[in-house]
Amino acid sequence: MPANSFSRRVLAWWRRHGRKDLPWQRRPDPYRVWVSEIMLQQTQVGTVIGYFDRFMERFPTLERLAAGSEDEVLELWTGLGYYARARNLHRAARLALERHGCLPPDLDALTALPGIGRSTAGAILALAHGEPATILDGNVKRVLARHAGVDGWPGTPAVMRRLWALAEGRTPPRQAGPYAQAMMDLGATLCTRASPGCAACPVAGDCVALREGRQTDWPAPKPRKSLPERQTWMLLLHDDQGAVLLQRRPPSGVWGGLWSLPEAAGTAEADTLARALVGRSPTQWRALEPIRHTFTHFRLHIHPLVGRVHGPATAGVKDAVQVWYKPGQPPPGGMPAPVVSLLDGPDGP
């Protein structure tokens, strides 16, 4: 069937069944669309809604985001994961104002900003400006790969070229915005990774995956590699006032720019590190149950050590790299999820 038949069926389905009242859809200006698209990368809609609402309350405009601090941005991102998205969002807001005075309505200018790829730029142009732009997020890749029977993992250049050609060929120039939303909804609600709802799919009639019974084969998964295992010992250093020491991590790398617990390479280094940080070490350490945290490229085994250092610390005083944090105080900034769970647990401050 021709490409325009595909788009007509998808749009007709969306008009009856698509999502039209998500927070970023109620007022789809370029800034709100951009923030939602960044948050939705590798994150479910149900999780994003609350984060999006809180983010918009604090940073309702591009100008407010650019004027905010990275700590504020990361704090609002805490728990959403993939923190490079937040750092790039903040940097891109400042660069957009510096270079253009706004979020530019141009594909090349958008993709020149940190964290904005071809699909995100296409979403901004199609959804906010009504431009004939194309998107290719994870949901759209899955729909197209199944419908056309595209072999291979979408992370490879050849497969991506094939999928982009399909996406561009099927995007109706005059309805690119509604079609983009329709394709995202189709992948998120019907053509799901597991148990796709083929009986209700508007394009099931010519879907290669359904015809061949190979819905689980497409898109092909990323080739498996065993993840390297890493170990770290996180120190929960308490003072007599109930504060715990936090350190800001370097701006790049794992948890870049977040506030975390001091880390040692083993129990033997814990005393030395504590003395270097606060001038004294605990009389004893108490080990908690290890925590396993999986990143994209490795698996981290966290061994928490709790120790109390006697004598008051300067609770609440923050410098560039460390702070004594007490419950009830505003967080100093964003914190990794494992650190939040440790601080919220019975051995927190």
Rank of each mutant, 00 (worst) to 15 (best):
N4C: 11
R8S: 15
L11M: 02
A12Y: 00
W14E: 02
G18Y: 12
R19A: 13
K20F: 04
L22P: 01
L22I: 00
V33D: 12
S36K: 00
Q42T: 05
Q42H: 14
V45H: 03
T47N: 13
R54N: 10
E57P: 01
A66Q: 00
A67L: 06
E70C: 10
D71M: 10
L74P: 07
G81S: 09
A92R: 08
A92F: 13
R94K: 15
A96G: 04
E98C: 03
D106L: 13
D108L: 14
L110P: 09
L110W: 09
G115W: 11
A121S: 07
L125D: 05
H129A: 06
I135F: 01
L136V: 05
D137N: 05
N139Q: 10
A148V: 09
G149P: 13
D151S: 13
R161A: 15
R161T: 14
P173D: 07
P178M: 08
Y179P: 04
M184T: 00
C198H: 08
G205T: 08
L210V: 15
R211L: 12
R224T: 02
R224P: 00
R230A: 15
W233S: 12
G242V: 09
V244D: 00
G257D: 11
L258D: 08
W259N: 07
G266N: 14
G266Y: 02
A270M: 06
L273W: 11
A274P: 04
A276G: 09
Q284R: 15
A287M: 10
L288P: 03
P290D: 14
F298K: 04
G307N: 10
G307L: 04
P312L: 02
T314M: 08
Q322F: 05
K326W: 01
V339N: 03
V340I: 15
S341T: 12
L343G: 07
